[in-house]
Structure formats: C-alpha cells, structure tokens
C-alpha cells in the first residue's frame, strides 16, 4: 500500500485516511477470525472492508490470521490412514454381526 507511507508524515495537518492505531483491536481481531472462518454476518463483512482501507493494525491482523490459517492448512502434513489399518477395520467389522 503506497498510501501508508505518504500519510505518516502529514498526519497532523490533514484528516488521516489510514489509522495507525486501532482502538478496538481485540474486537477487530475477533471479527477478522469470524470472517476468515466463514462465520461472519454481512454487517461484519462490511465493517472489515471499511477497516481494511482505513486501519493499519487491522490490515496487519488480517494478513497474520490469513497466514496462520494457511500455515495450518497448506504447510502441515496431512496424515493419511495406513492401508493396513483400513484392512484391519474392514475385517474386524465382518466378524461383528
């Protein structure tokens, strides 16, 4: 974002478009998590969109949450069930009925 560099120096003379401080950081974080989890309401989505153009801490939190989620989903190995176990289970239930 090019905007952040230009405004940091002139924050006193004009209305800042980009907040360097977030007053509701914990609430914003919770909202960001709801959104990334697909659990947010339209209202919360709209609020996030507004924050993402006006609040530097929210932008960073959003990227971090997204990154952590990606680390978990894409980078961690997904263990597959060993074939042997599948076979064992299938044969064990046959002796049940």
């Amino acid at each position: 974002m090019q905007t952040s560099s230009s405004l940091s120096s002139s924050s006193s003379d004009s209305k800042p478009q980009m907040k360097e401080h977030c007053d509701h950081q914990v609430d914003c974080l919770k909202m960001i998590q709801l959104i990334l989890d697909g659990e947010a309401t339209d209202q919360q989505l709209a609020r996030l969109k507004a924050n993402l153009v006006s609040c530097q801490p929210c932008i960073q939190m959003y990227h971090l949450e997204q990154e952590v989620k990606e680390l978990l989903t894409k980078r961690m190995e997904k263990k597959c069930c060993p074939e042997q176990l599948v076979a064992t289970i299938k044969s064990k239930i046959l002796t049940f009925s």
């Binding site: 960073q60 971090l64 980078r75």
Partner: peptide, 13 residues
C-alpha cells in the same frame, strides 16, 4: 507480522 512466520515449514507449525 505475517511475514515473520511465512517461512516456517510444516514441521515447525
């Protein structure tokens, strides 16, 4: 920062 953890590998996560 997101960038601080973006190089972690699966085992570390």
């Amino acid at each position: 920062r997101a960038e601080s953890v973006s190089d972690l590998i699966g085992d570390e996560v």
